[in-house]
Structure formats: C-alpha cells, structure tokens
Nucleic acid binder design. Structure first.
Length: 589
RNA sequence: GGUCCCGUCGUUCAAUGGAUAGGACGUAACUUUGCGGAAGUUAUGAUGCAGGUUCGAUUCCUGCCGGGACCA
C-alpha cells in the first residue's frame, strides 16, 4: 500500500509540473485520527524551493518554471497535491485530508481492512514473514555461560535476546544456525576446582549450584590479601596449569565431572526457555586455532612486544586500542580465542552473516578483535555483526559472579513461576496443568521484561518490580490472547449465516493488525526485538478495548461472522508475534 | 586523562527530523445480569542546562552539568 501511495504522489507531482526530485517519506501517523498513512511531501518540496530561492537569489520567474506551480507555504502546496490526487483515487483510499503544517493524510477504506483480515486468516503461521533474507544463512551466537560458574540472570537476558533476534531473522526468510560459546578453561575453572577440593566433600550427587558455591569460595580467597588467600592463589595457579596439560589424574576426574554437571544444568534451562543450539563452541578448542592464526600473521597484522604478541588497533582507527593476543608466557588470550571462534564459524557453515550478541562491556573489545579478523580475512568484515545488550544490575550496583552476589537464572525463573502458581491457587485446573501454565507464563513474564526495552540499556533487578503480570507485561499479552481464544471456542457451534454483514466503521484493532509485517521488518533492520514487544502491547490493548465495547456472542449482533474472523486474525497475529519473542500461548491461565 | 554510550512524567520504558511527546506502574474516581476483572474508561504528570541548523528538534551539531562502559 505504501508503495502504491508513493506512485500516486509521484504522478501527482509530475502532473503539477514539479520536476525537482523530492525525497519525501510516507509513514503511519502516531495517532489514527491523522489517517492511516501520511506524507510530508509538501514540506519537503517547500524546503527544496526555499533552498533553490537562496541559490538563485529569488528570481520568481525561474522558480516558477522549475516548480511549475506557485505556492507560498507547505499547506497551500499540499492542497494542490490533494486536488490532483483526488482526480483518480483507488478504492482502498477512502479520503485524503491536509492537516497540520502541511501533511497529506490518507484514510483507508473499510474494504481495505476487510481484505487484510482475510489475508491474515489465509496466511496463518506465515503471516508477518518476509523474504529479505531468502536463501541466506545466518549464524547467531548468544548466551555464552561458563561451565563451573553459575548461570546468572545476565545469561538469562542474553538468551532471551539472542533467541528473539534469531526468530526475527528467521521470519525474514533466513536459515538460522544457533551457536553457544562457553569458557571451559581458564582461571575460573581452577578456582572452582580448588573450591571443590577444599570443601572436603565427595562430589557424587552434587549439583551445579554446589559447584557454583565452590567457585565463589575459590574466587573470594583468590582475591584476598589474607595469608590464607595468598596461599590459595598459589594453589589455584598450579591447578590452572594442570588443567591445561591434563597432567593430574585426580584433577582430570573432577574437571570432567564438573564440566558435564554444569553443562547438563544449562541444558535444562535452555529447554525451559525454548532454545535449541546447533553448535557448542568451547574456549579450549578455539585456543589452538586462534593461536595458530595469530602467529601466522606476524608481522602482517600482529606485532611482537616484550615477549607478547599484540595488535595495535589504533594504527588503523584512532578509536581502537592495543590488545594482547598471546601473552608473555606464550598462552593465547581471550582475543586469540575469539579469532579462532570467528574463523571456525565461517569454516564450518560459511554463513552469509554471523551475529554475535554479548554484554555491552565487550563492545570495545569486540571492535578491536573484529578489526584484526578483517585484516586477516578482508572478505569477512561485512559479514560480522556485533549486537550488545545491557546488564542486569542491582539497584545499588553491578552484579558480579566473581564476588558471588549473583541471582541465578534458575532462582529467578522459579520466583516468576511461583508468582503464577499463587495467582492460580483458587482455580479448578489440575495441579499438573497449573505446573505447565506456570512455566509458560513465568518464562513469558521474564522474557517480556527483558525484551520490552531497546538493546543496550541496563535492566535494574528488583525482585518486586522486574517481574510484572499486569499492564505492560508478557502475561498481559498471553491473557488477552487466551480470552480471545475462549470466545472462539464458545462460538464454534454457533450458526452465523444470518449475521454476515460487514460493519461500516473500522476499529483500531484492524488498524493495528495489518501493520504486523512492517513491524517485523523494522525489527529485523534494526535487530531490535522491542519493536515487536511494543507493537504487541498496542495490539492487545486495542483488542481489549474492542472486547469491552462489543458484544460478540449475542443474538442481535449481525456482524458476528466478521467479528469472529477479526478475533481469529487477532489471535493469529498475537501467536506469531509472541513466537518472535520466544513466548508461548497457553490454552488457559 | 583518552574513546564510546546514556540523561524523557514520582518510578519504569517508548517515539525512521514531524502533528497535542505515547504506554505501563503508582495515585484519584468509575465500569460486572456482557462472551475470562491478570481487563476496560477517565483524571494526574516529563524531554538535564545553554546555544546552533531546520517550515518543524526528544531525535542532528557545539559547549556545559550528571551517570555508565572500555582503555591508560
């Protein structure tokens, strides 16, 4: 429709003799009373003429030759364009009005909206998809928790965002490959193993939570200046070496056990969250690959410096800085491993686009690493994208897994699910179904609270406020959809043969519904899932208003057939949209 | 100290350079013989400060103030 209006306007401009190339825009006004589409063409043309006037010092004759039409302000020009447009209006456009500073507003006809409702019902699960990335392969890396450390709410945040981005990209026609990158070697593992050994307990039957506590113990002592801490630090460094060369039988055993236990625990959480990864990359595997690439590219890209190998980012872009890729002990750093990872992704799947999502604090680091990669492989530069998200923070400061003041993802999920159970305590639903519903709704509350705001901003963790079940929330969207489905179920056996009239007025519900594909596209272009979240909330709200104003299932409703189709179109759109956020819709709640 | 990001109702979050800056929470009223009240309706209330560009600036530019990230 937007395209059609663009052509109409271009035609009108031509007929008016405006030969200047006017780059106007067409958008949906924020307020429906200003029409369904709106263009600023008159204002842009006016500005164009003003600039033209300045350039030629106001020679009236020349101006009017160039513009073919005389106008003293945008509003007057808009009126002229309007009259031109009205000479041949297509049936989808009901009327045109000029308003404000010179906007030309298009009001679509009831027929247009009725057709959209049918289109939604025909497309079903395909509704909202586009073909921008048809035939393309896109790899998305996200979550990235570390074995031997707790899966904290930051990982929960990363997972919700990465999963939603994956789905939005998938709706744009791409073949999606989900990847997870995990640090299975390094000081944090040594700290955890030190903690396990010094707990004096047997590992049999112990879980990931316990390993997390052992890690916290080791990490705290490692940083302590107390004699005990100094001693622990030495021991941890010894363990760290032994993990690398696998020279100690007992440590190998603990390592293999702990790695499996924590990874299995992560898998439980992924299942609950609805994520399934195709690839798991590990730092231990990326280290030798990255090291080799770095050493091969000295001195072309990397340089030796005091026994280490570094990359001088500032030589290429003054916004970058120097980072160490192989340290003075000859060991590859995170940077080297990151190079190994990036190239492994391209070697395994050769994606057209490789998206990496990390916390915002990795932003500067990734810029340097990606510059280094693009110097080694110039063809990959345009195929790598880095998306950052904010942190989960306590109201009084930063959350740190190193200090142990973390909220685990599991406990937050449990809290959220408990609130749902509490809300359902008086309902007659069976305990088993209540458990299932509490999972779906609890996860939704959490995911929505993460996905509702634009990426990059922090989320302040407050146990009272961060999980919301009313108003602007995941459960609100689910509840509204469930209610709509409930009407459809009740209407199944009703005969609507004599209730097939089409109403003359169009509600906000229809006006939101047809915009869904545009929202998906916008969300892909910006890689920002919150556009979908915001849209769904507006859509659900418009349904609730509709629901409050209309009696659907009453004998007098001669529009019943159309209303039921409209509700079907609504539930379909909600279902598709919530899927993009990684949220399911329960049967009832 | 350098580079980058961010300052919007009391709180939390929106707004491709557009129209009266929009939701949610909170607060104050109201709506249930009407299909699910986790809902709806109404009221309340904000662009850090000072300039600049523009027909038009929350958005772009400059300076200042305040917060954060990375680097040193």
């Amino acid at each position: 429709m937007q395209h059609k209006i663009t052509l109409l306007i271009k035609e009108a401009l031509k007929n008016l003799g405006i030969i200047e190339d006017v780059s106007f825009s067409i958008e949906h006004p924020a307020d429906f009373k200003n029409g369904d589409y709106s263009t600023n063409v008159a204002m842009v043309a006016f500005r164009g003429r003003r600039q033209f006037e300045k350039a030629i010092d106001g020679d009236e004759n020349t101006i009017n030759v160039k513009y073919g039409v005389d106008f003293t302000n945008p509003h007057k020009l808009a009126e002229k364009i309007k009259i031109e447009l009205e000479k041949d209006l297509p049936k989808e456009i009901l009327k045109i009005e000029v308003a404000g500073a010179g906007f030309i507003n298009f009001y679509l006809s009831q027929e247009f909206f009725t057709e959209r409702v049918s289109e939604i019902l025909n497309k079903g699960e395909e509704w909202g998809k586009n073909k921008i990335l048809e035939g393309k392969k896109v790899m998305v890396e996200y979550t990235d928790p570390n074995p031997f450390k707790p899966f904290h709410i930051g990982h929960l945040m990363a997972n919700a965002i990465g999963e939603s981005i994956s789905r939005v990209v998938e709706f744009s026609g791409a073949n999606i490959i989900r990847a997870n990158y995990q640090g299975d070697v390094g000081p944090h593992v040594a700290k955890a193993i030190w903690g396990i050994i010094h707990s004096g307990e047997k590992v049999e039957g112990k879980n990931a939570l316990w390993i997390g506590e052992c890690y916290s113990l080791g990490a705290t002592l490692y940083e302590s200046l107390h004699p005990k801490g100094v001693e622990a630090k030495k021991e941890i460094e010894v363990i760290n070496k032994k993990i690398y060369d696998r020279s100690d039988e007992e440590i190998n055993k603990i390592y293999d056990w702990g790695r499996k236990v924590t990874l299995d625990a992560f898998e439980e959480i992924y299942k609950l969250l609805g994520t399934k990864f195709e690839y798991y990359f590990f730092e231990s595997e990326m280290a030798p690959i990255g090291e080799k690439i770095v050493r091969e590219n000295v001195p072309k890209v990397f340089n030796e410096s005091d026994g280490a190998i570094v990359f001088h980012g500032e030589n290429y872009d003054k916004k970058l800085h120097t980072r160490v890729f192989i340290n003075s002990q000859g060991l590859p750093t995170y940077e080297a491993k990151e190079i190994g990872l990036a190239l492994t992704k391209f070697e395994k799947e050769n994606p057209d686009l490789s998206i990496t999502t990390t916390a915002i604090e990795q932003g500067e680091y990734m810029k340097v690493v990606q510059k280094a990669i693009s110097l080694v492989h110039p063809d990959l530069e345009s195929r790598m994208k880095h998306v950052t998200h904010g942190m989960m923070r306590f109201a009084d400061g930063k959350m740190s897994s190193r200090k142990g003041n973390v909220i685990t993802g599991e406990s937050l999920l449990n809290d959220s699910m408990d609130i749902v159970k509490e809300k359902m305590k008086d309902s007659k639903i069976s305990e088993e179904e209540k458990r299932q519903i509490s999972e779906i709704v609890g996860v939704s509350a959490l995911k929505y609270s993460i996905l509702r705001s634009s990426l990059g901003s922090d989320i302040i963790y407050d146990s009272e406020k961060s999980i919301s079940f009313e108003g602007d929330s995941g459960p609100y969207l689910q509840y509204t959809t469930v209610r709509a489905n409930s009407i459809l179920n009740k209407a199944k056996d009703l005969n609507t043969d004599d209730k097939k009239e089409t109403p003359e007025s169009v509600t906000d519900l229809e006006k939101y519904l047809y915009q869904f594909p545009e929202v998906v596209e916008h969300s892909y272009e910006t890689l920002q899932p919150h556009h979908v979240a915001t849209y769904l909330t507006e859509l659900a709200s418009s349904f609730n208003t509709f629901y409050g104003n209309k009696q659907i299932l009453v004998e007098e409703n001669k529009y019943m057939d159309y209303h039921l189709n409209l509700i079907k179109a609504f539930t379909q759109t909600m279902k598709n949209g919530l899927w993009l956020l990684g949220i399911e819709v329960p049967e009832r709640m």
